[in-house]
Amino acid sequence: MFELLNGWLKQIIILVLLATFMDLLLPNNAMDRYVKLVMGLLIILAILSPIFQLIRQDLDLTSLSDQQLEGSGRENLSSVKAIKQKGEQLTETQNRLIHEQAEQRMAATLRKGVEKRFPVEVIQSEVKTKGKEEARIEGVHLVVRRAADKGGEEAVDPVDPVDPVDIGMDSESRNKEDHQKDEPSSEQRALSRRIVQYVEETWKLPPEQIKVEVEDG
């Protein structure tokens, strides 16, 4: 800063000295006014030269913003804080949205795969993830109903006759209760086990993270 001022002042002083010297040197009055005009312009240029530098280097914007920061410091600082907070919030929501989206996608692919592989209708499929940067699957929850009319009738057909066999084994009232809450007898359990196995193999998950519920069609 001081060097800049120093050079600027030196330049102006030397120019003024030169101008006066030239004024003395000049011949008679004919050229006097013109030469004086040009010298005045030169001195004005020398005085303005720092502004030229400012404009040429496009420093004016940064210096202006610095001045603003210095001038009304507190408000701007708080606003900067607020902006940072907002940015963090935004990134959080963004991450959350990404996770949700990923969960939905995974659930949809799971549903498709299961429906393709097994003769069932997936009522509900949920995939839960965990972790911020690298999300990992925390658990898979599937609710499945045996499809009545769809293509997988081969599997459905043999299931039907099994129920009466179960009913026949126990007393009917008990069996009804069983039907209502925990019907999964051998067939359903087998189906759910197969689905679990399938999910385990395709998604490379430990079996305790996979929950499959089979509802009665």
Partner: peptide, 8 residues
Amino acid sequence: ARVNTLFL
């Protein structure tokens, strides 16, 4: 004095 050469 590093006067601009244009001036001189």
